[in-house]
Amino acid sequence: MNIFRFAGDMMHLTSILVLLLKIYATKSCSGISLKTQELYALVFLARYLDLFTDFISVYNTIMKLVFIVSSTAIVWCMKRDRVVRRSYDKQLDTFRHYFLLAASFALALLVNEKFTFQEIFWAFSIYLEAVAILPQLVLLQRSGNVDNLTGQYVFFLGAYRAFYILNWIYRYFTETHFSRWIACISGLVQTALYADFFYYYYISWKNNTKLKLPA
């Protein structure tokens, strides 16, 4: 494992901690898209089917479990916690995420490394992760004002993707057999989706003003 990959994982972990902190500290999930969170929970459940079949390292196993547990806990909290769920911006979170699900699954059936149950679900999770942030970005754009913790949550998620790209570039040059084209191309698409958000995040940071996205 290289430093970029590790930094990426830590950014990912930080983004989840920031989100949990926001929900627990403010007892509110306003500005957070339940649809994106549901998609992420599904991404981890579909991808980590290999928990039962392949052992990579203790680090990998623990991180996989942390991602599965934290993402399902967030979804559970937004749906079931009687205080938190009242702050959910349901009327703004209207992105039709079932289309993303169907498209990702269809693509996974067509483009995968092997036509097996596990490989199809792995490819599905990669495609779904690439687009899972869309309902969240649309929700932020609709609500206009973005609170600090929500902005930081999306920022850390974007940073995680950026570090993974550096990781792939590093691996491409240092490893002889590194070819994970499905993950790399989907990763590039996913990171590109954050470009707009990063631009406005940078502007607000530079001017020291509240993050505001144009309608």
Partner: peptide, 10 residues
């Protein structure tokens, strides 16, 4: 034969 490398990333 096409061998798929282990998936070591998260």
């Amino acid at each position: 034969c096409f061998e798929v490398p282990p998936k070591d990333e998260l």
